[in-house]
Amino acid sequence: MRDKLDRIDRPDQSHFFASLDDAVLDEVDVVDETAAPASLWQDAWRNLRRRPIFWVSAVLILSAVVLAALPGLFTKTDPMFCELTRSLDLPEPGHPFGFDKQGCDIFARTVYGARASVVVGVLTTIFVALLGSIVGAIAGFYGRWFDSLLSRITDIFFAIPLVLAAIVVMQIFKQYRGILTVVMVLAVFGWPQIARITRGAVMSVKNSDFVTAAKSLGASRFATLVRHVMPNALAPIIVTATVSLGSFIVVEATLSFLGIGLPPDKLVSWGADIAKASRSLRDQPSILFYPSGALALTVLGFIMMGDAVRDALDPKARKR
């Protein structure tokens, strides 16, 4: 050990202590009772409220949902009522976007198109989230051969391109075309991403000390999974689901664009309208703008919401 006594009396190194007057020592480790209690969700909500991106996407999503639920509030015109005499007519009072080649009112079609997109997006996401998180949770939590088997199945489905598979299957079920068919087809091929995310999240949570603590309290494995593991793995699932909601809307539009999505004689779809508009692109390019603009804004809304929610739920990924 160093000889500590040889040169202790140098300038500025003598024994100094702060004045005892301002030495207000707190009790060791007291609870701050002034702040309002807040759960992680409340914290995330407080954080979310401060983000402009959240409000912008919330407005976009809300408008799409209102259009989908109550299209009659915005237009009295029947989108299926088309008169060839009005083909490609320009905008006029009562018909602010003008008419397409078949003489249908573009504004009415844009408004009514929201329903197909929103319903397909939301329903598909619900099914995908349920299927994906159940498969992912079982694989991640129980491990062993469950995991090997389910992970391989997930990999197989992951390797199938969503759009391609949907085209093939929709081709087979041509006569049953409708919203539910599209939703089912997308759900069957769309779940692997959520399954993978859930499996990873569950695996990282299941080794936490609080899960071990619950086990040593005598909680059953299933109860631990449902009560402790899943709530803590929920954040990444919500984020992925929100972002993929946007992409399911895009796939529905793609299928309808190709003419194998929703039946054009029964349902209005932005995808089908984009396909029709592209044929009269040279005569009147503005026709293309309305359905594709509406589609882009809706998808943008969900993707931005996913981003905002991710930042709010995961402080580590937050941009500085």
Binding site: K4, S14, F16, A23
Partner: peptide, 29 residues
Amino acid sequence: EQLVVMYRGQVVESGPSVKILSDPQHPYT
């Protein structure tokens, strides 16, 4: 040889180690 004790951003006591250990003056130390 020398110790500096910090508490809440302030140096509350400093000096030769032996002295601080044997005769701490500040309540925190």
